[in-house]
Design a protein around this nucleic acid. Structure first.
Lengths: 231, 231
DNA sequence: AACGGTGCTTGATCTGGATCAAGAAAACAG
DNA sequence: CTGTTTTCTTGATCCAGATCAAGCACCGTT
């Protein structure tokens, strides 16, 4: 197993502070795999045999019920999913599929649980991570329950602007997935983009440019307790 | 500080396995308080000075944005809120108010964080609790994104039936709050109850009776990955 | 270059759910 | 008990967003 990606994993907050010996033990049981696009990695209801770490590419977390499907989140390098199921050894609540060609590390769940119980620094990191995940989902719920679809899109665009650090950027996912993530249909997303034109949002293909961010913000009314996903 | 409620708290999974000395230290800094109905306990954006434990009564967790408000969850005895903010020392994402007269224990957050870092059993329990909270919110999101309001109500009724262990039970919250919790207006909740009559749901005031649970289940299609809040 | 496939857009229509308004029923205070 | 307030219900109307249908743009394949 090449040293290279182990360093990347070690750099993750989740693994940064743990004992060297324990980290090595975790990595000993782990292995890397390359997946083509659109491959189902895990499925709702499965047992969490592995903790997954995305090294490159991207992964879609989605859920289904009664023939309907909804995109819940996107996992980008370098981060893990789905920790909560692994830790409590309970069935996955979401399915995961690669969006593009992806390199993914698989760490046996039993190893994670075992080392969790003997490495306090690792335990501390897991708690921080879980609390963060929890807070993210709460923010997402507030977004869904308190805002209209137009407001959700406006705030999504402002968040992407912050992430990219520029008033011009490319969408990081295809529009049909964005629609599902925001809880709307592709048709309505198309119309919603049009609906934001009066606030200075220009869209061509997957390129977005914001004429006047303040103008857009006056409509979107972004709020750190919903939109700041770093805390 | 009377022994009585300390035993109740000790019985909580979160505190059950920790060292006696550490539990005592936690309780030494804690104090109990009685609150009348409809008192705001904490407010979004506040710093988490205390971990709250509900001994009696009930507490509504809700959120606001842009003049709108939505009920997110109800906390019933004996359980805690809001752990995630306390642990990571980050602002609350939700506000909390008493629904009825309630006895609540306040445990200083600094004590919780300090003892968390030196008591492995306590750390383990916190992880389990956080993972459970996380999974609950994910289930709630799936409920919201994958189901119509009528389906959400039908499944809510089936969940309450399971909890009460009977096909007849009383609603545990007023209808306007239930509506908000389910993501609909009070007017529409009223109509939704009517809409479930064909499936054998009878409502009079806050008393519900289900004529044929199987009939209702055929419509509601309950799913453990959304509706079973014990895992 | 022609092709099929897929995603995106646009228009027309439909519907679930929100809003507005008013009356009925409870809950509460004096 | 009585008047007041709040919740719940019902009806009428309105609107956001879903669905249906068709055309268009893009992209990799052969």
């Amino acid at each position: 197993m090449p040293e290279s990606y182990e360093e990347d994993i070690r750099a993750l907050e989740l693994f940064a502070e743990m004992e060297e010996a324990n980290f090595d033990a975790l990595m000993r049981g782990a292995y890397v795999q390359n997946f083509p696009p659109r491959i189902d990695l895990i499925h709702e209801e499965d047992r969490p045999d592995f903790l997954h770490v995305v090294l490159t590419g991207s992964v879609d977390l989605y859920s289904s019920w009664n023939g309907r499907e909804s995109s819940m989140a996107t996992v980008r390098p370098i981060s893990t999913f789905i920790l909560a199921a692994t830790i409590n050894d309970l069935p996955y609540l979401m399915s995961a599929r690669t969006l593009e060609r992806s390199r993914i590390v698989l760490v046996p769940s039993t190893d994670v649980r075992q080392i969790f119980s003997k490495d306090p620094a690792f335990a501390r990191a897991i708690v921080t991570e879980l609390a963060q995940c929890y807070r993210s989902v709460v923010k997402n719920t507030k977004d869904l329950k308190l805002r209209t679809s137009l407001e959700r899109l406006a705030n999504y665009i402002l968040r992407q602007q912050t992430l990219s650090g520029s008033t011009e950027f490319d969408l990081t996912m295809e529009k049909r997935r964005l629609a599902s993530f925001l809880g709307m249909t592709p048709e309505n997303l198309s119309r919603a983009f049009k609906g934001l034109e009066p606030y200075g949002v220009k869209v061509s293909s997957n390129h977005i440019s914001i004429v006047d961010p303040d103008d857009l913000a006056r409509f979107a009314k972004p709020n750190p307790l919903i939109d700041d996903h770093t805390t």
